[in-house]
Design a protein around this nucleic acid. Structure first.
Lengths: 216, 216
DNA sequence: GTCTATTTTTAGACTAATCTAAATTTTTTA
DNA sequence: TAAAAAATTTAGATTAGTCTAAAAATAGAC
C-alpha cells in the first residue's frame, strides 16, 4: 500500500495533469503547500515504485498504475462527499476537508459498499463525476456561463472553483446544481451576466460566470 | 491535535487501565505490537502534553484530558462499527480493522452527525457501550455464561474476546447479541455448558462460556 | 548563441516514531 | 536483605517526510 502522503502527491499530479501534459516540480509544490525540494524527493520515491514517469528536470506524468491509484482516491473523496451531503446533511461548502481525510481510508470493501448504499451516484455534490470501481467515469460536456450567448438555456452542473466562499455565494444566489437557468442578458462593458433562474433574476460578475458550469 | 499514534497510545492505556490501576510499559508495548523502548519515548511525550501521569519506572495513568481524548476515539470507533454493520451490512467480525482507521478522522461535526443519522445508538455491534458527546456511557451489568448456574436465563449482551475467530464461532452457533438464552446444563468435569437458545441447544466449552457475556 | 532568470536538484539537517543493545531501577525470592 | 530476575529507561541508529541553502540544468531574451 501507499502512504497518505504518496496518495496526496498522486492525486495532485492527476489533477494538474488534466491541464498541461507534463507536470512541473514547482506546480506540485504549490498545490501541496510544500517546497520544491520536498517534491523532488517524493518524485524519486514514486518513480521507484513505478507510479510516475520521471526524468530529472523533465517533469512527471502518471503511469497507468499511478493513475489507477489517483482515481481510486478521487473515487473515495467524491463518494464520501456525496455521503456527507446526502446522508449527513452537510452543506456542499463544508465537505471538502472531511473528505480529504476520509479518502485515505484503505478498505476497498468499505468504499464499494458505501457506493451501493447510496445507489451508485454518478456525480458528487459539486457536479464532479465519481469514478466507478474500475476507475471509469463520464464527465458531461460543460460550458462556463461566460461562454454562452443571450437566451441560451441549460442546467447548472458543475463549478470550476471549489472554494467554500464561492460555493456559499452560489448557495445564497440559489445557483445550485441541477437548477435550470437561462442567460437573460450580458453586459458588454464588464461581461457580467444576468441569469434567469426560475422566477428570479440574478446578476453575477464575469468571474462568477467563468466558474459556473452549465450542461446545455 | 494529537497524532494518529498518540491517539492509539491513549486508547490502549485506557483499555488497559480498566483492569489494573497503573499501566506498565511492557503491557502497553504488547497491546500495540511495539517495543518497550518505543513506549517509554511516547510516554514522555504524552506526559509533556499532560495527557498522562507518568513517573519513571512507576507506570502511567490517564489524566482527565487524556481520558477525554481516549473516550472520543472509542466513541468514534464504536459509532463507525455500528454504521458498518447497520448501514453497510458488514458482519460483526469484519468491522474492527476498518473502524481502527475511521476512528482517527478528526471532524467532531462528522461523528456527531453520524451519531444522529443512526439514531444515537447506545451499544455497538459487539455490545460495547458507545460514549456520548460528553464521553458519558452506561455499561450494563454483565456476567460471563461461565458464572451462571443451571436454569438461569438472560440475554446475550456482550463478548470478552473480540477476535474474528470467536465472533464467527458465535455467529455459526447462533449465539448473537440480543438472543435470549437459558443455561440448560453444566458439565462438572470440564465446565462446558449446554445453552438453550430458542429451540436449539448449543454445547460450548468453558473458554467460550467465559467470553460470552449475559445480562440477567 | 551567449547570458541571465527560472526551475529543479543536491547536500545536509531536523522531527516523529521506531528499533536494538546496554544500562539502570524495581521486584522477587530465597 | 542481598542476589537474581524482570521491568524500564537510556543511548545511539534508522526511516519517512520535511526544510534551507547552495549548486546545476534548462529556458528565454537579446
Amino acid at each position: 500500500m501507499n502512504t497518505f502522503t504518496e496518495e496526496n502527491y498522486l492525486k495532485a499530479i492527476y489533477h494538474l495533469s488534466s491541464k498541461t501534459e507534463s507536470v512541473g516540480t514547482n506546480e506540485i509544490a504549490a498545490a501541496l503547500n510544500t517546497k520544491a525540494a520536498s517534491v523532488t524527493d517524493m518524485l524519486k520515491k514514486l518513480a521507484e515504485k513505478k507510479l510516475i514517469n520521471y526524468a530529472r528536470y523533465q517533469g512527471v506524468t502518471l503511469t497507468t498504475a499511478g493513475e489507477k491509484v489517483a482515481l481510486s482516491i478521487i473515487r473515495k473523496h467524491r463518494l464520501w462527499e456525496y455521503f456527507l451531503v446526502e446522508k449527513l446533511n452537510f452543506k456542499w461548502d463544508e465537505v471538502h476537508d472531511v473528505a480529504e481525510e476520509l479518502e485515505h481510508i484503505s478498505s476497498k470493501e468499505l468504499v464499494d459498499r458505501l457506493d451501493d448504499f447510496m445507489g451508485n451516484p454518478k456525480y458528487d455534490p459539486h457536479g464532479d463525476p465519481i469514478p466507478d470501481k474500475q476507475g471509469k467515469f463520464k464527465a458531461h460536456e460543460l460550458k462556463p456561463v461566460s461562454s454562452l450567448e443571450v437566451n441560451k438555456e441549460g442546467i447548472i452542473s458543475g463549478v470550476r472553483d471549489h472554494s467554500a466562499a464561492f460555493l456559499q455565494y452560489l448557495e445564497k444566489m440559489s445557483l445550485t446544481i441541477g437548477k435550470k437557468i437561462k442567460i437573460a442578458d450580458i453586459n458588454t462593458y464588464d461581461h457580467s451576466v444576468i441569469i434567469q433562474a426560475g422566477d428570479k433574476r440574478v446578476h453575477v460578475s464575469r468571474e462568477v460566470a467563468n466558474n459556473l458550469l452549465i450542461a446545455l
